[in-house]
Design a protein around this nucleic acid. Structure first.
Lengths: 212, 212
DNA sequence: TTTTGAATTTTTAAAAGAATTAGTCAGTAC
DNA sequence: GTACTGACTAATTCTTTTAAAAATTCAAAA
């Protein structure tokens, strides 16, 4: 039984999400969110200590949705590669649908990465943990061999991120955030990347020969 | 026989490089460079159309040095992995030694990636081509199998870049550019990345079975 | 052709003020 | 006491202005 408080919080999150996703963090005021809800501005501060907290709460909410969706799929996925592909496609879809929501967090990261580390870092960790879990399945299956799951998941995630920034620097885009068209391009690169990466984790058929 | 003009240009590049590498593009004025050379400021504009051209000329100069050094090593390298490791270590060393030189180009990229694509893109291409050449050696040796060399080189380079941005977002660094300490960390990740990546390019011992 | 001093145009930097918006608080209603 | 508000304060952003610094040009000298 969700308490009344939680229902209100959820309502606020829902409205804030729409605003943030559509206009971005900077172009959304607390007053606007309050008006959408027919609340007083002060009430928002009753439920959330400040704007930034509201923003990260929305982010968490949205990311949780995705993680759960992916987890559900992964639970009954046939192969490791299928599972990972589903994960990155879901991630892309999420970013496409909530364009300006993430645009803020990336530009925030550009200005001051330390801020990112503190407030946005946990989200990164959650996604990495999910990748870690997915890789674990592959290890169970015997599809791949991994000595350090978390580290390898991070490696994979970092290189996927690299596809994004890499594309953006080549394609003549004057924004830090990909345009809808570029999403496909990035996704294509990421798929190729994953294919090579997973192949690199396959158990060697030969006995350990040149493990330098 | 280098012409007199070329000698002067080289002198200017040498001095400008020192200034840029030490103080960065923003904190270096044309007047300072001129004074270092005991030239008039106007003479600089006789040899280089504008400051930005001078900057990219310095960048080209420095990157050429590195590419040549790496090429020389690669020519007599024993293994593919050795060659690539030498390449990324040289790259790191270059960035360490010319810290502020590159700091500008990365911050430039942050503000306006399209600018990057136009003026800094060619440098990226040169490095990618070098990686492409190195991979080609591995293909000749039979160490790896690659269908599209350039594309694969780009993939590798992008994921190496990902290690950098990835580290920077986790480590609580308030700058877009790694601190000397972080270089080592990035390099370590890149090495692991390369190890997996190359393994993923190894020819399959089994006949093509699950090439999805 | 190479070089310069001085003039000109652009950028940058700081200051000040207005306007917008984040955040607070004393107090009301239930 | 919990949920809520209107009115208040404080911080932030957005101009506008101005001055300084730096980039770039140019006529003319060597």
């Amino acid at each position: 039984m969700p308490k009344n408080v939680d229902i209100k919080r959820a309502k606020i999150l829902e409205v804030a999400k729409k605003r943030f996703a559509h206009f971005g963090m900077a172009k959304t005021t607390m007053a606007e969110i309050a008006k959408d809800l027919s609340f007083s501005k002060a009430l928002l501060y009753y439920y959330f200590p400040d704007k930034h907290s509201l923003y990260t709460a929305v982010l968490e909410y949205v990311i949780n949705e995705m993680i759960n969706k992916v987890d559900a799929y992964v639970a009954k996925a046939s192969s490791l590669e299928k599972a990972i592909l589903f994960a990155i496609e879901s991630r892309m879809e999420l970013m496409r649908e909530n364009y300006n929501l993430f645009e803020y967090s990336t530009s925030l990261f550009m200005q001051d990465p330390s801020e990112m580390g503190k407030s946005l870092g946990p989200f990164f960790d959650r996604v990495r943990d999910q990748f870690s879990r997915i890789l674990a399945i592959g290890v169970k299956n015997g599809e791949i061999v991994v000595d350090n799951l978390d580290e390898t998941a991070e490696l994979l995630l970092f290189s996927l991120m690299g596809m994004r920034t890499g594309i953006l620097s080549k394609d003549l885009n004057d924004c830090l955030f990909p345009t809808p068209d570029e999403f496909e391009l990035i996704l294509a690169k990421q798929k190729k990347m994953i294919s090579i990466f997973l192949r690199g984790l396959k158990p060697s058929v030969l006995s350990s020969q040149d493990v330098s």
